[in-house]
Amino acid sequence: MGEDPAGQADPSYLEVARRLMGSARDLVGAHAADDLVFDTMSTLLPRWDRITGDKVAYARRSMVNRFRDQGRHLRVEAAHRHTFVTPDREEPANDRVASRLDLSAVLHLLPERTRQVLVLRYQLDLSAADLAVILGMPAGSVRRVAHDGLRALSDIIEPASEGTAS
């Protein structure tokens, strides 16, 4: 195992994959997180030893890029899909949130762009300028989407909390 410039040991390939899983779950949901991380890491494996610097950051950036590519593909596919599957049992959004205040579940109640901005900005700690480049939108728009997304999360969580506090 090599060392990075800060003197810390390089994380192993499997450790990097484990670190990516939480972010992947928030980006695409638990059902597709394994595939996103597997695809990302399998692409990096042939050149793993040649990656210099922070391997976790490099892998995270690769995962975000792969997510964006898959998102483009899914948007085209969705535009041509005329049917969709509904769950067997519908629960009101506030009941779902109240029954298990799971951030991933709450994030998936938000629009895709808002969810992307919140996860990339606050979970992966990317700057508004970095997000502007990644998402192809002005930095001011990134900040606005993040602000509106946080407000929407608050609106979703607070009514659920009020309903359970009786």
Rank of each mutant, 00 (worst) to 15 (best):
E3M: 12
E3A: 10
D4I: 09
D4R: 11
G7C: 02
A9N: 09
D10R: 14
S12P: 00
L14W: 00
E15L: 08
A17E: 00
R18N: 08
R18T: 05
R18A: 07
L20K: 01
M21C: 01
M21R: 11
G22C: 03
S23T: 13
R25Q: 11
R25L: 04
D26M: 13
D26Q: 10
L27D: 00
G29D: 05
G29R: 02
A30F: 08
V37P: 01
F38E: 14
F38G: 10
D39T: 06
S42W: 07
L45N: 05
L45Y: 14
R47H: 11
R47E: 13
D49G: 08
I51E: 05
I51L: 13
V56K: 03
A57R: 15
Y58I: 10
R61N: 10
M63R: 02
M63F: 00
N65Y: 08
N65M: 11
R66D: 05
Q70P: 01
G71V: 00
R72V: 10
R72Y: 06
R75Q: 13
V76G: 09
H80Y: 14
R81G: 05
H82S: 11
T83Q: 10
T83D: 13
F84W: 12
F84R: 12
V85E: 10
D88V: 10
R89Y: 12
E90F: 13
E91L: 13
N94W: 12
D95N: 11
R96Q: 14
R100Q: 15
L101K: 08
L101W: 04
L101V: 10
D102R: 04
L103H: 05
L103M: 10
S104N: 15
A105M: 09
L107A: 00
L107Y: 05
L109T: 07
E112C: 04
R113G: 01
Q116V: 00
V117S: 07
V119C: 01
V119D: 01
L120Y: 03
R121I: 02
R121C: 02
Y122K: 08
Q123N: 08
L124F: 06
S127P: 03
A128W: 00
A128S: 14
A132G: 11
I134N: 05
I134P: 04
A139H: 09
A139P: 06
G140V: 01
S141A: 12
S141F: 06
S141N: 09
R143D: 12
R143I: 09
R144D: 14
A146E: 02
A146Q: 03
H147K: 13
R151C: 08
L153S: 05
S154N: 14
E158Y: 15
P159Y: 05
E162Y: 12
E162V: 15
T164R: 15
